[in-house]
Design a protein around this nucleic acid. Sequence first.
RNA 1: GGGCCAUUAGCUCAAGUGGUAGAGCAGUGGAUUCUUAAUCCAUUGGCUCCUGGUUCGAGUCCAGGAUGGCCCA
Length: 524
Amino acid sequence: MTKAERLRELGVLPYPNTWRTNPEFEEGRRQLVLLAADEAACAKLPLEDELTEDSPHVPLFGRVVAKRGPFLVIRTPHGDAQSLVRPDSLSDRDAAVLKLLDLADHVLVEGPAIRTRTGALAVSARRYEHLGKALLPPPAKWHGLKDVEKRYRERYVDLFANPAVAEVFRARTLIVQSLRRFLDVFGFLEVETPLLHAIRGGATAKPFDTHHNALDLELILRIAPELYLKRLLVGGFDRVYEIGRTFRNEGISTKHNPEFTILEFYMAYATYEDLMDLCVDMIRAVDADLRARFPGLTGGRAFDLQADWKRVHMREAIVERLERAGQGDVPTTPWTEVLSPAAVKDSDAFAAACNAMLPRLDASAQRQLAHCETHGERVFAVFELLAEPDLTAMYRTPDGAQSVPVFITEFPWEVSPLARRNDDDQAYVDRFELFIDGRELSNAFSELNDSDDQAERFESQLRNRARGDDEAMDFDADYIRALSHGMPPAAGFGLGVDRLVMLLCNQPAIRDVLLFPLLRPEAE
RNA sequence: GGGCCAUUAGCUCAAGUGGUAGAGCAGUGGAUUCUUAAUCCAUUGGCUCCUGGUUCGAGUCCAGGAUGGCCCA
């Protein structure tokens, strides 16, 4: 006979729903768990035999994760606390129900809080209620659940068996709340724009295809919210933001999941330089919130957010990388043999250097560089191949102990189809990407609000498509019409929220900050 | 996409060069009841990821596949 059947014999439902919580129980439990973690406060509790008739009873409810002698360890969202459950302190009925307890069951105990002989808190149970049955045993109490695949597939077990994992997800929520609060205070309006798009725009990426039956319409899941948010600037919402899911039909890795969370905000009458200042303030504010509440997650960092954040033109970063090759932690590179710092400004010399370098690159880098047709595309490719991998070695705190955040600015226009051209040099745009700890976290620019220029950029994207770039954008005629109605001068900002959580919470893989990362379905 | 590694009981892990598949915890039955991975006695539990091959004999060797991890791209 199963335990569930034996419970029924005692008149107890295995899955009851009769005991209900209320604000008083919730607060009582929370205070109790906090008290259990406070050694000094526990020392003031009475021993069992010092109790008086009027000692107040407190509730403790949650999942039983361990049995030790006459003690049950009960796990709650706030932490663990234990209960001393002795049959002779319980009614016969409660004692009989207690005998049918399995690890992982949900239970309620009520009784006075006491100090044990070892100085710990325990709820000395006068009442014991079975609240919910578990049929499967929990993972080994000492080792927990370690199997990485199982942790992702059975996240529900991971979360209750490994409290440190649950902590990361609580921290994630705090980070998102903190981002919202920061933007709300600055007068940004949070909005929701469509996830189903008819054409691809706002980023260069491969989309997921889907279909709407009633309209018989081929649709894609959005690869970025950008173009809808900028339509709202035209509509008169001067400061808007959206935090939401975005989908890119690409590979899965420690840094990529097909669906991820993006923050984008747009600010009228501002430039990309204003956004650099705002970005520093925002990330520092979020980090301060995080460190105050989750100090255990934020130690031992390889980067310093309090240091001065560097601002480096993309071409300067390439020059600096060449000049510092072999110094400190910046490795030597064959690029120094083919590309002189002076040649970075000279499109012919730069192209020749790229050609000379081609046979020395690995297959993927060759593809990336050979694909380039213009100087701007080559500058971007060389930045990615040469400078980006060593940003953490190049930009460090004065004592050299930590890397500092760096804004890479002045991108070539060809790789920036939605960004405003620089007034002094039309070949480059007013754009930056933020790198912290060597990882690309943000992309932002002064917005292109010249509808004629934007139309030319879309045409350029179509030419890229024609020559085989299957990530190029579509021509968005409605967006051109929107710009033609007049978009205020503005700057916009995008941030990978999952990557920010990884960075601030010291998590090595994006799967560690996604509750349910995409996995292949299990075999039958 | 390429390379390397892993896959054995519910969980965590063992099984020199091929020779009867094991432990701890969980579970079950009992004892004990101020424990801190509770303890003590007894005990159940296996398609060793899958499919083939070599062999008298395969968890172990070989080939192919599956899933996952790490690195590279």
